[in-house]
């Protein structure tokens, strides 16, 4: 769907037929829109409202109007900024690594002439697997007691506790996240690669361009749209990271993400006021990232017809 055709038909051509077409269109569209909004619009408005109160679910009678105090509390709290930093770090590192690995995999899938079914099947398994299962698999793999990672990495002490330090725990979380989502990235990039004209690549090759030159000068520029769409969706997805952290560390060793912090306030602490403020801020952060990526990198949203 290109956006140009998305607008209303010119006034002059408003006829009975187009009016009935419009009615039909809205009848077809309405159920989906209602369902999408039913679960999102009310809760976020409610969160917006509750965020203005001091409100603990276990002491509902002590509810007290605070105005924007909850937001001040959150935004001046070092924990919030630490978790924002963690989340952004996870987002940048995982998306960066996935871009490289994902491109390599896409390239392999693009070029390979045999065993395509096998390759496609293998790469789809991590995509389809439950994130929680991936988290468990990697948690056990990195486990000091019964994991194989310490034994397989020659430079690693056999009793190194991956979940005992900040950086190693973050690494374990990111490995699980990357493993699970690289296939998605690779497939989006494959779609981009298949748009690159083989003639252009061959012409460059005839002109004596090396493999790297062809990659940088011909292939990558021609699949820019695909890369940007992939980055946008994966970045937003990574920013919401929750499952892996919940299973692997529960936020210990300072591995908490913004989503996990929000979950803890709302669900564990019963701090509906403060937690709602966090919910709203989390929502705004996602909007901000989407906005920055779209504006800064000029992602063509009309092309972004995909979700993770």
């Amino acid at each position: 769907m290109s956006t140009e055709t998305a607008g209303a038909p010119p006034r002059a051509r408003v006829t009975d037929r187009s009016r009935s077409e419009e009615r039909l269109a809205w009848r077809l569209v309405a159920p989906a829109v209602v369902v999408m909004l039913a679960v999102t619009a009310y809760p976020i408005l409610r969160a917006l409202y509750l965020s203005l109160f001091q409100y603990r679910a276990t002491a509902p009678d002590d509810r007290e109007f605070l105005g924007i105090d909850n937001y001040v509390t959150v935004l001046t709290d070092p924990l919030w900024w630490r978790d924002v930093w963690n989340t952004v770090l996870i987002m940048v590192v995982t998306v960066g690594v996935e871009l490289v690995i994902g491109f390599a995999f896409a390239y392999v899938m693009w070029k390979i002439i045999f065993a395509r079914g096998l390759i496609r099947t293998s790469i789809l398994i991590p995509y389809g697997i439950i994130t929680v299962v991936s988290a468990f698999a990697w948690q056990f793999a990195f486990s000091l007691n019964n994991g194989f990672v310490n034994g397989w990495l020659p430079f690693m002490d056999s009793d190194f506790n991956w979940f005992g330090q900040h950086w190693s725990a973050m690494t374990a979380i990111m490995v699980s996240e990357i493993w699970k989502t690289t296939p998605f990235m690779a497939l989006l990039l494959l779609a981009g690669l298949s748009q690159v004209s083989g003639d252009m690549v061959e012409a460059a090759q005839v002109d004596g361009a090396s493999w790297w030159q062809r990659l940088y000068k011909v292939i990558l520029p021609n699949m820019r749209a695909a890369i940007m769409v992939a980055v946008l969706f994966r970045a937003l997805d990574a920013f919401r990271i929750f499952d892996n952290i919940y299973v692997m560390t529960r936020g210990a060793q300072n591995t908490e993400s913004v989503s996990f912090l929000t979950y803890r306030q709302v669900i564990e602490q019963f701090e509906l006021g403060l937690g709602s403020a966090l919910s709203v801020l989390l929502f705004l952060s996602v909007l901000l990232i989407a906005f920055v990526l779209v504006k800064l990198f000029r992602v063509d949203l009309a092309a972004a017809r995909r979700e993770s």
Partner: peptide, 14 residues
């Protein structure tokens, strides 16, 4: 124990 920071009632049994 090497897993001190993640130890619980179960990990110390072994």
């Amino acid at each position: 124990q090497p897993d001190l920071s993640v130890s619980n009632e179960g990990t110390v049994l072994g």
